[in-house]
Computed example of a mutant assay.
Amino acid sequence: MSLPMLRGCCRVPSTFRLFLNQSVILSRSGKQRLPSSSPAAAVTAAARPYSSDPGRQNTKQKVRVVGITNPFIWFRTRIYYFLIRAYFDKEFNIEEFTEGAKQAFSHVSRLLSQCQFEALEGLVAKDLIPKLKEKCSLMPLSHKEALSAESYEIMHTVPGDVGIYYDDNGRKFVSILMRFWYLTSARLPDHDMEGTRFFQIVIGGEGEEETKRMLTAIYEFQREFTKGVPPDWTITRIEHSRLLD
């Protein structure tokens, strides 16, 4: 699976400030209710009005993310990125990888949502596909819909653990764990989604309100760097919070 860069900015149809790892509720009036604990990261959106028809104004904006990272983890992952460039792939770039991972996440999550398991072959590890198929077969339709993440609905992406290892046969592997935060309009029962974030945003003009949830997903990407092996990344782990746990 190739991981080309995605270009452009994510957009959401309202002005909001969302603190990840906290619950935030926004209403039409713009009032917020936040817990007192400090955030791990923040997503902010600065609105810019534009006119879609006479007498009505809509908003569209670019999303900017401000993150607070554990300095030990940040330093450790930078060492791993250096080792990957030095010993495995001199053209490796974590920013390009992250953008490509977002595209892969959007594509694979859409296939999962539509239960197109045959299409996952070559993208997802073979031994993982039957497990996903079994879990998805037990999920209600609303949960399947919530698996899908369009690229413009991905609000934040963070690289996690990085691993470099060899097996008993001397084959070389690199794995990179990616965490995604994305929006969904799927109607999910509150008792099934305890702990997820939700808020209201205004789409279009007055009175057109839609409630969206912020969900998280973890995808692990693995590539074998043994000489003669195709340079493809494969997804070896998939977790969708409260959906595919």
Rank of each mutant, 00 (worst) to 15 (best):
I94P: 02
A42K: 08
S52A: 09
S185K: 14
N93F: 11
Y219H: 07
R187N: 13
K212T: 07
W74L: 10
F198E: 12
C136H: 07
E220L: 03
E121A: 10
L215Y: 00
G195Q: 08
K212I: 10
K135T: 03
R187Q: 15
S36P: 00
T157V: 08
G67S: 15
H156Q: 04
I68P: 08
P140K: 05
R17Q: 11
G163F: 11
S175M: 05
M139W: 05
H107E: 09
M214T: 13
V24R: 00
F16L: 09
S241K: 04
G30H: 00
L215H: 00
G8A: 05
A45W: 09
G30K: 00
D190M: 13
L243M: 00
V43P: 02
F117M: 15
R11S: 13
M155V: 15
R85Y: 02
S142I: 11
F198G: 07
M155S: 13
D161V: 07
P140M: 08
T236Q: 02
Y219E: 06
G163A: 15
Y152Q: 14
E134I: 03
T236N: 04
F75K: 07
E99W: 00
R171D: 07
I154C: 00
T59G: 04
V66S: 12
I73H: 07
M214H: 07
K133I: 09
Q61V: 11
M193R: 06
Y80P: 01
S36L: 07
D127W: 03
S137H: 10
I129H: 05
P231F: 07
F88E: 10
E208H: 13
N58S: 13
P189A: 14
L20H: 02
V66Y: 13
N21D: 02
K102H: 08
H143E: 15
T44W: 06
R11I: 14
I68Q: 14
A41P: 00
D167R: 01
K131H: 08
F16R: 03
I25W: 15
S36C: 03
I201Y: 12
L123W: 07
D245L: 11
S27R: 14
N21L: 01
I73D: 09
T77R: 05
V174I: 02
R48C: 06
F82C: 12
K102L: 12
A104H: 12
I79A: 09
